[in-house]
Design a binder for these strands. Structure first.
Length: 191
DNA sequence: GCCAACGTTGGC
DNA sequence: GCCAACGTTGGC
């Protein structure tokens, strides 16, 4: 049975528009064990996910992706030049995994965090819980469908603005995704 | 293994 | 820029 996910990424680093352009990308840079275990144990090809723009103005749900592959060794861990380089990881037993996602749809208008927060059907969303910082979290099917319905237009929309500000400070292990990102598990452009 | 110091996340 | 939350590091 399909599962549903919410994947966070800073749009300054990689946005739903970038994914629309690329079609498909590797969700690399995850350096959190819990998120890695989601990708290894629970996520399956064919699952659907909400692409969430974090650290944006405004933050919110931006579109839908499909999980294409899971449990793929993250190549950045072996790249000495990458900020995600993990010298302790060995090729025979990679520490860090990624998934590959493809573009499904870009929401008509971004569903702002404020809207998610005020929606009774989404009261249990993990990302709304205080202190939650996981870059990938599971969703109930009903939650996924509710967010998708909000994104398709209609009630509850709040700003659709997008802003391309300068990239943020580099992130470090334990968290980060991209040199210029602080979002655990954000992605870079597919090669 | 404890825990203080420090770094990161991410909304505001 | 602020700061709460929480993860990691490193001395002991």
């Amino acid at each position: 049975m399909a599962r549903f996910w919410l994947l966070k990424c800073e749009p300054d680093v990689y946005s739903i528009d970038d994914l629309a352009r690329d079609g498909r990308t590797g969700w690399d840079g995850v350096r959190n064990h819990q998120v890695r275990n989601f990708m290894r144990d629970d996520m399956k090809a064919g699952d659907l996910g909400i692409f969430y723009h974090s650290n944006a103005e405004p933050p919110g749900a931006a579109g839908v992706v499909r999980i294409e592959r899971t449990g793929v060794p993250d190549p950045t861990q072996f790249d000495a030049k990458s900020d995600y380089h993990d010298p302790k990881s060995r090729k025979e037993a990679p520490t860090w995994l990624m998934c590959e996602v493809s573009f499904v749809e870009r929401f008509e208008e971004l569903v702002a965090l404020e809207t998610l927060r005020s929606d009774a059907a989404l009261a249990n969303l993990l990302i709304l819980r205080r202190g939650n910082r996981l870059s990938i979290t599971p969703l109930e099917q009903a939650e996924f469908e509710r967010i998708r319905a909000l994104g398709a237009g209609g009630a509850g929309r709040a700003g659709a603005g997008r802003k391309g500000t300068a990239a943020k400070d580099a992130a470090k292990s334990g968290a980060a995704a991209k040199p210029s990102s602080r979002a655990k598990g954000s992605i870079r452009v597919a090669k």
